[in-house]
Simulated scan of single mutants.
Amino acid sequence: MQNSPISTLMIDSRRFLVKRDDLINPYLAGNKYRKLYTLLKTPPKKLKKIISYGGTQSNAMLAIAAMCKRKAWEFIYYSKPISETQKLSQLGNYYRAISLGMRHIEVEYSLYRNFIASLRVSIDADTFIIEQGGAVKEAKKGLDVLAQEIREENLDIKSLATPSGTGTTALFLALALPEHKVYTTPCVGDVRYLKTQMQALHELPENLIILEPKKKYHFAKPYPEFYVMYKKLLDAGIEFDLLYSPAMWEALLSQTKEEILYIHSGGVSGNESMLQRYLAIDARKSNL
């Protein structure tokens, strides 16, 4: 695949550059493409099955499903129980992942944590487990490739930004580009949780700067301020995801001043179902 292009974005009278990883592939885009880079380069015959787990709005889930479809690997995804409404919906990441061949297994709330912890007990050589959100050490190779692409651009910018769930992308990007500041912010949980997730993979480098969000955010929960920021960015010319990007942009606009290269983390395929939820909230408000 060719290097992803770079766009200019003007917002609040500030100029940002955006590394358009969202344009790499409809499903295998953004930081999920970078995290799965090593597996994408793995010969199909080397593995037979991929196992992962997490939320069913996950962009990583859809990206893994697309990869497994391409490689003809079985894909099993575990989650806590989901609603019948989501199972029947023909919108969003869950629907698309199922359409690509994902086998979804629900685990009861009371058993979930212990079940996930036991997944590696009986794993065989033909199976690979991808931690929630793609938080695996194998992701480093894909972020090294991204770092090389950024260097090849010869940009006069020394600050980068990317939002964090597990923090894998921000961590490995900071390690690969020690000459740059790498901003991130926790979009799931708080700063302490984010640091714990990243430290499970590597010691935190000094050039990784974690910006404190306004509040603790819960994954896939609608927030009015996220919707406002989404529309503001869309009006400026680029669509970003509704799950992570709004929190990162709010932190950048309120806590930084320099010119920044924003790494677009993709995930806009999930906007379809999230926008339906925001529209439903607006409809309820208008009926009050």
Rank of each mutant, 00 (worst) to 15 (best):
residue 2 Q to H: 10
residue 111 L to S: 15
residue 196 T to P: 02
residue 208 L to W: 10
residue 191 V to P: 06
residue 275 L to T: 09
residue 179 E to A: 10
residue 35 K to Y: 01
residue 222 P to W: 09
residue 197 Q to V: 05
residue 240 F to K: 05
residue 223 Y to K: 03
residue 38 T to R: 03
residue 160 L to S: 10
residue 177 L to W: 11
residue 243 L to Y: 11
residue 166 T to V: 05
residue 61 M to T: 03
residue 228 V to I: 15
residue 112 Y to L: 12
residue 80 K to L: 13
residue 194 L to F: 05
residue 182 V to M: 07
residue 224 P to S: 09
residue 193 Y to C: 03
residue 150 I to W: 03
residue 86 Q to Y: 12
residue 100 L to M: 04
residue 69 K to L: 03
residue 21 D to E: 14
residue 234 L to F: 07
residue 114 N to Q: 15
residue 176 A to T: 04
residue 59 N to Y: 07
residue 97 A to L: 10
residue 190 D to P: 12
residue 202 H to I: 01
residue 161 A to N: 06
residue 133 G to R: 00
residue 39 L to E: 02
residue 211 L to C: 04
residue 93 N to K: 03
residue 262 Y to N: 01
residue 249 W to H: 13
residue 136 V to D: 11
residue 188 V to F: 09
residue 96 R to P: 00
residue 264 H to N: 12
residue 159 S to Q: 15
residue 45 K to N: 11
residue 241 D to N: 01
residue 90 Q to T: 15
residue 164 S to D: 08
residue 204 L to W: 06
residue 143 L to S: 02
residue 267 G to T: 09
residue 82 I to G: 09
residue 97 A to C: 08
residue 241 D to W: 04
residue 85 T to G: 11
residue 209 I to V: 15
residue 2 Q to S: 09
residue 109 Y to T: 15
residue 98 I to N: 06
residue 44 P to D: 07
residue 205 P to M: 02
residue 138 E to T: 14
residue 80 K to R: 15
residue 222 P to I: 02
residue 69 K to P: 04
residue 155 L to P: 06
residue 221 K to S: 12
residue 45 K to F: 08
residue 101 G to C: 12
residue 129 I to R: 11
residue 263 I to S: 07
residue 89 S to V: 03
residue 19 K to C: 05
residue 90 Q to F: 06
residue 30 G to P: 10
residue 216 K to N: 14
residue 213 P to G: 04
residue 9 L to V: 14
residue 124 D to N: 15
residue 13 S to M: 11
residue 194 L to K: 03
residue 213 P to H: 06
residue 44 P to Y: 03
residue 225 E to A: 09
residue 25 N to L: 01
residue 26 P to M: 09
residue 183 Y to C: 04
